[in-house]
Amino acid sequence: MYCIETKNLSHSFSPNATVLNNINLKVPHGSLYGFLGPNGAGKTTTLRLLLGLLKKQQGEIFITGKNLQQNRIKILKEVGSMIESPSLYGHLTANENLRLLQKIYGCPQSRINEVLTITGILNTGQKKVNQFSLGMKQRLAIAVALLNNPSLLILDEPTNGLDPYGILEIRALLKKLNEEHAVTIVVSSHLLTEIEKLVTHVGIINKGAMLFQDTLKALTEMQLTSAKTNLKCNAPEKALEIIQLFNHSSTVLNDRIILPALSPLSIAQLNKHLVQQNIEVYEISTLENDLETIFMELINKN
């Protein structure tokens, strides 16, 4: 059973503009799930559907095994969320913002100071939220999301507006919540580099379609298989014959021979044979695609 599971979730804002097309999201319990995609890919629409902010048109949504439509209130008791920009009452203080939500969640009043401490904004006193910097607002919005001690956190670009130190702090906080308190976390972002150090699972969406969904490890393995070794020499055709003796598949591109990524030992052996056959080797190098390139390739293929 997944913590979040959608079945053929589709949505359109007008008859000719499908925003989501058969999305089958599978977020395992206890995972830290990075939901990635460029701007306008359908991330926020998916998250808004998961929270019941948009009326579901097609498909099914299950959260902790329960159907969202039939168990909305029961599910929301266990969910903390932050969608797009922070939702805070500017004319009230941080404490008042949390107090009005604490009344509804029915959690102890001491929880207010706990979440303010966790997010590092305990000492804002009587300062109104209108006077907060964007970073402080973002922290308070995360404090709001944590107030009810949720077992599932849904955060849409939570590090927007934070300084580098703030980003590191929030990352560490999310990791801690996930590892020590077994909170399942879904974090959306349009930058893989921003969350690759954080997440255990990745879902990549573009133009309303799910392009990839698996563990981060699986994405990293994809990265390794997509790495290439480049060879430049004075006689590419002769070199190709030798390479075939080693059972390596290869292609020639702009006077360079492109091979699957070779180990250092294989590179040394190949180089030795080429030199023995009087081929002048100018360069052998291995190019590893970073995760961002894989992400971009997946998106561009779509």
Binding site: G52, I73, I83, S87, Y105
Partner: peptide, 9 residues
């Protein structure tokens, strides 16, 4: 804040 309000239980 409508979105925050509507995600309350």
């Amino acid at each position: 804040c409508w979105k925050q309000l509507h995600t309350l239980p």
